[in-house]
């Protein structure tokens, strides 16, 4: 198990080199996950909002016109700098940025009405510490809306998916199954109001596997791992669709609306 400092440094190394990639990524810009999160958040326009692990800011930018103010944080300075640049280009005024770790948030107790986090907790070194911090910074009855890629409930597929994700990107820490998210969020002092099984956008394997970064033997190992899935597993859990030398697939994601008790 990597220690806290190693995980943070791995995540920062990974994302500092890829701010432009994420800024242009249709997976992060679109897909069900953003709409599901916005639908669950259903802002009234008065919310002091925090978007954790904002990356290059997609979720924060989508929330900005719907809330009073958004603070967008990320662990990686290069991602925040890119987000600042994009916010300036889009002339978004009610937004501020800070570099921050999800497990040690730099905000006062009960200072926020809405906290969001999208497609990121699988990179966090300590999800329980993250949830405890979200609980601390939210006012009573404040709303926490999150979405993350999750693994299936089956132990076999949970191990398979986390191995494949880590092979491709060593900043991947762990994708929990929905039942574990429900338990951890409830334990952290929230009431679950809504949950939804969602998916990120269908991705080309040859794009996703990042052949420009991962050596051919790693790409092959990941391809072999997909080949080991049964046809039912590939279709039901990962929507695998062969296409020539490539195939398209998606990860299951889970969207949660939780109220701070």
């Amino acid at each position: 198990m990597q220690n806290k400092k190693t995980i943070h440094s791995t995540v920062r190394n990974q994302f500092s080199q890829h701010a432009d990639y994420y800024a242009q990524s249709s997976v992060h810009a679109k897909g069900d996950t953003l709409n599901a999160l916005l639908d669950f958040a259903d802002p009234k326009g008065t919310e002091q909002t925090l978007d954790i692990a904002t990356g290059t800011g997609f979720t924060a930018f989508a929330l900005a016109p719907k809330v009073a103010h958004v603070v967008a944080t990320d662990l990686t300075p290069e991602m925040v700098e890119k987000a600042v640049e994009l916010a300036q280009q889009q002339a978004i005024k009610n937004i501020a940025f800070s570099v921050a770790a999800a497990e040690a948030l730099p905000f006062a107790d009960a200072s926020l009405d809405l906290v969001t986090c999208r497609l990121a907790p699988h990179h966090f070194q300590d999800v329980r510490a993250f949830l405890s911090e979200v609980h601390r910074v939210l006012r009573t009855d404040g709303l926490f809306c999150m979405n993350d890629s999750v693994s299936p409930e089956s132990e076999k597929l949970r191990a398979w998916q986390n191995r494949v994700e880590r092979l491709r990107d060593n900043s991947h820490v762990y994708g929990y199954p929905p039942s574990q998210w429900d338990a951890m969020i409830t334990d952290a002092g929230f009431s679950l109001e809504k949950t939804a099984h969602t998916r990120n956008a269908q991705m080309s394997f040859l794009w996703w596997v990042r052949p420009e970064k991962n050596p051919p033997e790693v790409v092959q190992e990941i391809r072999d791992a997909f080949a080991q899935l049964s046809p039912d597993e590939a279709r039901e859990h990962y929507t695998v669709q062969p296409e020539g030398d490539d195939f398209y697939f998606s990860w299951p994601t889970y969207t949660v609306k939780a109220r701070r008790r």
């Binding site: 944080t73 300075p77 600042v84 940025f97 800070s98 570099v99 921050a100 040690a104």
Partner: peptide, 9 residues
């Protein structure tokens, strides 16, 4: 840094 608070312990 670059006008952005770096609030990391």
């Amino acid at each position: 840094r670059e006008g952005i608070p770096v609030m990391l312990i």
